[in-house]
């Protein structure tokens, strides 16, 4: 079905429009905004309390001081506001309802459509980071690194976002075969929160476990940008860190493409 469409020149405008629409749609759910911010504040309080108590009763580990870990946790929670969004949830819903068939008829790239939609949603939630940051500053002291580290963090966060997008996309693509994926998706969310270093910095994991989790793609989502932010990954290691993130992005983007093609073919065979 995709092949029968005449090839057109690629235009970015429709995708910008999709992203805008998604931002506007999200803005109508003001109540969820309040929930996200309240939940953010509670989580931050809990993390601050637990880490403070842990550092008070034990010798501090060499890798991270208490202020560093509080900064780490706060930035992780702020990142979570946008990273924890399942941007391609719509794909799974459309597959279940069968409305995916009409998407294939439109003169657009469907995966890019989902990417634009998801990015719009994420951009709206990125705005939430601001009030959340204000609340955070009341609760904890957040260190701000120098401009070089900040720029490296931003780049690393961006690649991490792309890695996260691919993981979500792959999960949602499995719905081509299974239709129901909520439980599987939640399993991956829980596992990736823990193994990606969102909750506990990977450098504090027991050494053997650390060696394993650092080779997993989840580390590219949270751990790498965060360790750049707090300075555990120094300037001389930036290139290596980016390289491993880009490796995961390329690999997962490749898998996404393959799964999308195989899945799309299946829809055509079944007739949607």
């Amino acid at each position: 079905m995709i092949g029968t469409l005449p090839r057109r020149r690629f235009r970015i405008e429709p995708y910008v429009e999709f992203a805008k629409r998604a931002i506007m749609r999200e803005a109508t759910y003001r109540f969820d905004v309040f929930t996200s911010i309240a939940s953010f504040a509670i989580r931050l309080y809990l993390l601050k309390t637990v880490w403070t108590a842990l550092y008070a009763h034990n010798p501090a580990p060499q890798e991270l001081s208490l202020p560093a870990i509080l900064t780490y946790s706060t930035v992780a929670l702020l990142m979570g506001l946008v990273m924890d969004i399942d941007q391609t949830r719509a794909l799974h819903e459309r597959l279940r309802e069968g409305s995916i068939a009409t998407d294939f008829m439109k003169p657009i790239s469907v995966p890019l459509y989902f990417f634009a939609e998801g990015t719009g949603e994420v951009l709206f939630h990125a705005v939430l980071m601001l009030p959340s940051l204000v609340i955070a500053l009341f609760l904890v002291h957040v260190d701000v690194p120098g401009p070089a580290a900040l720029a490296a963090f931003a780049l690393s966060f961006l690649i991490g976002y792309l890695v996260g997008f691919c993981i979500n996309f792959i999960l949602n693509c499995t719905a081509f075969w299974t239709l129901e994926i909520s439980a599987g998706q939640m399993i991956v969310t829980w596992v990736s929160d823990l193994l990606g270093g969102e909750l506990i910095p990977l450098v504090l994991f027991p050494p053997a476990l650390q060696a394993v989790v650092e080779t997993l793609p989840f580390a590219a989502m949270f751990s790498t940008p965060l360790l750049i932010y707090v300075g555990t990954i120094g300037p001389d290691e930036y290139l290596r860190a980016f390289a491993s993130q880009v490796f995961w992005f390329v690999l997962l983007a490749g898998i996404s493409t393959l799964m999308w093609r195989a899945g799309a073919k299946r829809v055509v065979v079944q007739g949607g």
Binding site: V50, H57, N58, P61
Partner: peptide, 9 residues
């Protein structure tokens, strides 16, 4: 994982 590193809370 946490208590492996910090034996007491």
């Amino acid at each position: 994982i946490v208590l492996e590193r910090f034996p007491s809370l």
